[in-house]
Design a protein around this nucleic acid. Sequence first.
RNA 1: GGCUUCGUAGCUUAACUGGAUAGAGCACCUGACUACGGAUCAGGAGGUUGCAGGUUCGAAUCCUGCCGAAGUCACCA
Length: 614
Amino acid sequence: MQFYSHTTSLLSAYLEDEYSLETQPKDYSFQPTRKEFEGNFTLVVFPLSAKAKKKPEDFGKELGDYLLLNSDYVDAYNVVKGFLNITLSLQFWRDTLLSFGDIYQHFQHQDNKGKLVLEYSSPNTNKPLHLGHIRNILLGWSLSKIKARCGHEVIKTQIVNDRGVAICKSMLAWKKFAKGETPESSDLKGDHLIGKYYVIFDRALSEEYAAWQETEDADQVFREKGKKEDEREAFFKNYKNQYFNEFSSLGAEVRKMLIDWEKGEPETIALWKKMNSWVYAGFDETYKKLGVDFDKTYYESDTYQLGKNLVEQGLNHGLFYKKEDGSVWVDLTDVGMDEKLLLRGDGTSVYITQDLGTARIRHEDFGMNQMTYVVGNEQDYHFKMLFEVLKKLGESYAEGLFHLSYGMVDLPSGKMKSREGNVVDADDLIAEVIATATKSVEEREGMDGLSEEEKAENIRRIAMGALKYHLLRVNPRKRMLFDPEESLEMQGHTGPYVQNAFVRIRSILRKVDEELNADIADYLEINAEEKELLILMLDYSKVVETSAVDHDPSHLANFLYQLAKTYHRFYHEHHIVRAESAYAKNFRLKLSSAVAAVLEDGMDLLGISMPERM
RNA sequence: GGCUUCGUAGCUUAACUGGAUAGAGCACCUGACUACGGAUCAGGAGGUUGCAGGUUCGAAUCCUGCCGAAGUCACCA
């Protein structure tokens, strides 16, 4: 990285003096030199030659000559078409290697970018976490680390959807059918127990609905809608929600419960608190297994009433308007969207009202200038509207809002649907990947001699490394096909592959620890694989930064794979401990140690820990 | 239907944000342990980047139009 800025400033000074040309860092496009050409890295001259109005070929030579004279790091150059290929000096390789004695040195230019509130996970309390949540959580966690590294003060937060119809369904079903069942008595994790009763409710409702379809009432509804007899099945398939609201006795009971809850009826509140506490215990366990946490958790039951004041203010300032029935709306047609309801006619909140209030509260709590929501792309439109309304309200952080919109996770069997049982449960998945890793370890001898505890910890790291890497290596925006078989894969482009490079290095360093500080100045024959590693590592901080700016950890994940791959090749091509000279050995030990440090640091930014053995 | 996002080897994907001959992994073939860990390495085969135009020194990337997929268009969250 510093080399790029070093070269950029040399050249921009030259162009300024010689051509009175103003150039931006953007005009300097560097890339590693392709293998078929001579050189280590390449400057693309077209943008510059266009500005200077010179022929790319000639201009490349001119810049090459200048660098040759003025930079200690440039040994030779050649120009092919508009590409200036530069061969770097011994001095450069040594300085670069030494700079990785302290990785943080590469991030020092990062200035303070202020406070960022980052929201992720944000589950409902009526069912356990599933694969979709895992993608969300891993993205959020990794992003929090990456952003922090790049100069943000990050506040991790979630909002728990702990109220409403859904949780009342679980509560009602528990009350009716559970006979006092608890997580202890059933030996079920709390969130799974609640999920179980959510499913039981849905089943009971389906039965009730099926029976109702045979009644006079149902016939009448069907006839009133003027449907033909052969459409009967399709009609009732779509009518379920309306049935729930208008005819269902279970539906009536749920609504009664919701009203009781809103009134603060003690028995209902007590049940609600009890069941939610079970769920939270379950969530905490899963979060712990995933190795994530939050600085502050918001609960919808505390925040759902918020936002009304903000809407009132907006109304007073003429930003919003009121319809005859008393409902409040905002007109977003000027920015290409629709009109959006902000308050119901009876004065109660809707979803967006709550989000407005929550945003304001968070600003009061933390005074952030930026806020990022990790939420699935099904809510794209909601967030577009939310951000626009916050802008209209003139909130100070409104320009710093971002929706990290990630793609849904599909299974080979199709879309995940909780009600149809077509979901990959988070806890099950974690258990499965740990079981697979355990089996792999039994087939090898890498962990022989370790205690059971040490083994278990290493296995856990390998398993979670496989799962996390599998989910993080793809671009978050993209819809993702999740094949459970593939997520258990530990060879090839996987987390364990990257971990394996690290473990190999540690294995060597355990044997020769005391020689790490030896001199490298007399090593003159730096080979191609060593150079490739150093060039790659030089990109590290840039890649982290790109991941931060793009909100995309996959850049980093792919970089780490590339680095591990290059190291594996280097390892096969050259002896380290038994190198051809003491100088070579010292250089390679130091290089290996630097690679290990970058791999470990980078994986940590993805939320993945390294095993010591595997 | 309107809007948004996405189409890259059989499958999963990358491409430094417009740069050189589109790069990997899986699966499939062939090789490498009397060398620091074979969860590894080397090699082979596999591509009209959905299609058709356009923009320019140069396009998977930007623009236009088709084709296909997903999401969304609630006084649900």
